[in-house]
Each structure stands twice: as C-alpha cells, then as structure tokens.
Amino acid sequence: MTAQSPNDPLHGVTLKMILTELVEELGWEELGRRIDIRCFTHTPCIPSSLKFLRRTPWARDKVEELYLRSKM
C-alpha cells in the first residue's frame, strides 16, 4: 500500500491547496506562530514557502499535521 492511497486523508490534496487554505484561515502571522519557520515569519509568500516546504520534509509534515488538525 502506498502513502498516497485513497484511505490517506491527504489523498488528492496538493501542498499548494493546503498552504493556501491555512493562510486564508489563519493568516501568515498566526501560521508563523504555530509553525515557527522563517518562510512564514519573514516576508512570507506562497511561492517561496512552497519551495521551502517541498525541500524540507520535517516542515512539510508540520504543515500537513496542522491542516489535518484544522479539518477535525
């Protein structure tokens, strides 16, 4: 069974969709407070944050975790 199976709650949800939704719901300031990474706290923008998150598995995991918690 792969990590992206239909039973995966993130199946079909892109990182861009996750980040955009979190920014709309929380705003950059709150997102930076909850996940203290520089791309959220210093001149944040979607493209640079996506680039960082795609290269940094631990940060992406934190964003995905926050997204899943926000959906419960």
Results as ranks from 00 to 15, higher is better:
residue 24 E to N: 13
residue 68 L to C: 04
residue 35 I to Y: 01
residue 44 P to T: 02
residue 37 I to E: 14
residue 65 E to C: 10
residue 2 T to I: 06
residue 6 P to E: 06
residue 24 E to P: 01
residue 49 S to C: 14
residue 11 H to A: 11
residue 70 S to E: 14
residue 44 P to L: 02
residue 22 L to K: 06
residue 34 R to Q: 14
residue 41 T to F: 01
residue 45 C to V: 01
residue 65 E to W: 09
residue 12 G to N: 08
residue 4 Q to C: 02
residue 14 T to N: 09
residue 65 E to L: 07
residue 18 I to C: 05
residue 39 C to V: 15
residue 17 M to L: 05
residue 30 E to F: 06
residue 14 T to E: 09
residue 29 E to L: 09
residue 69 R to T: 15
residue 47 P to D: 09
residue 30 E to N: 06
residue 48 S to H: 07
residue 36 D to Y: 10
residue 27 G to H: 13
residue 63 V to L: 07
residue 49 S to I: 05
residue 13 V to C: 03
residue 53 L to T: 00
residue 66 L to W: 03
residue 46 I to V: 14
residue 63 V to Q: 02
residue 16 K to W: 07
residue 5 S to T: 11
residue 5 S to E: 12
residue 2 T to D: 14
residue 37 I to M: 13
residue 71 K to T: 02
residue 24 E to V: 02
residue 64 E to K: 11
residue 45 C to Q: 00
residue 56 T to K: 04
residue 70 S to K: 14
residue 50 L to Q: 07
residue 58 W to P: 04
residue 48 S to L: 10
residue 40 F to Q: 08
residue 33 R to F: 12
residue 69 R to I: 15
residue 27 G to N: 12
residue 13 V to T: 05
residue 29 E to M: 03
residue 38 R to H: 01
residue 10 L to Y: 10
residue 17 M to C: 01
residue 2 T to A: 11
residue 54 R to M: 06
residue 68 L to N: 05
residue 5 S to W: 11
residue 1 M to G: 12
residue 21 E to L: 04
residue 5 S to Q: 12
residue 42 H to D: 13
residue 33 R to I: 12
residue 57 P to F: 09
residue 67 Y to F: 14
residue 49 S to A: 15
residue 50 L to H: 06
residue 58 W to I: 08
residue 24 E to S: 11
residue 10 L to S: 09
residue 60 R to A: 04
residue 13 V to F: 00
residue 71 K to L: 04
residue 22 L to P: 06
residue 31 L to K: 01
residue 59 A to Q: 02
residue 55 R to K: 15
residue 46 I to A: 05
residue 48 S to P: 02
residue 17 M to D: 12
residue 55 R to Q: 15
residue 67 Y to Q: 07
residue 10 L to H: 08
residue 64 E to W: 03
residue 25 E to H: 01
residue 54 R to C: 03
residue 32 G to P: 14
residue 2 T to R: 05
residue 69 R to N: 15
residue 34 R to K: 13
residue 29 E to N: 12
residue 57 P to I: 07
residue 42 H to Q: 14
residue 7 N to T: 01
residue 70 S to C: 12
residue 48 S to C: 07
residue 49 S to F: 03
residue 56 T to M: 00
residue 7 N to G: 08
residue 58 W to M: 07
residue 66 L to D: 05
residue 42 H to R: 12
residue 7 N to P: 01
residue 12 G to W: 06
residue 66 L to C: 03
residue 32 G to E: 12
residue 2 T to P: 15
residue 1 M to S: 08
residue 2 T to N: 13
residue 55 R to M: 08
residue 32 G to D: 13
residue 21 E to S: 14
residue 38 R to N: 04
residue 49 S to M: 06
residue 48 S to E: 14
residue 46 I to K: 06
residue 47 P to Y: 09
residue 44 P to A: 04
residue 45 C to H: 04
residue 4 Q to L: 13
residue 40 F to W: 13
residue 36 D to M: 03
residue 26 L to I: 00
residue 51 K to I: 04
residue 34 R to N: 05
residue 3 A to G: 09
residue 72 M to L: 15
residue 5 S to V: 03
residue 46 I to N: 06
residue 57 P to A: 10
residue 47 P to N: 10
residue 54 R to V: 01
residue 58 W to Q: 11
residue 38 R to E: 13
residue 52 F to S: 11
residue 28 W to Y: 04
residue 4 Q to D: 15
residue 33 R to P: 10
residue 18 I to V: 11
residue 25 E to W: 00
residue 56 T to W: 00
residue 24 E to T: 01
residue 48 S to Y: 07
residue 10 L to G: 09
residue 10 L to A: 10
residue 43 T to H: 13
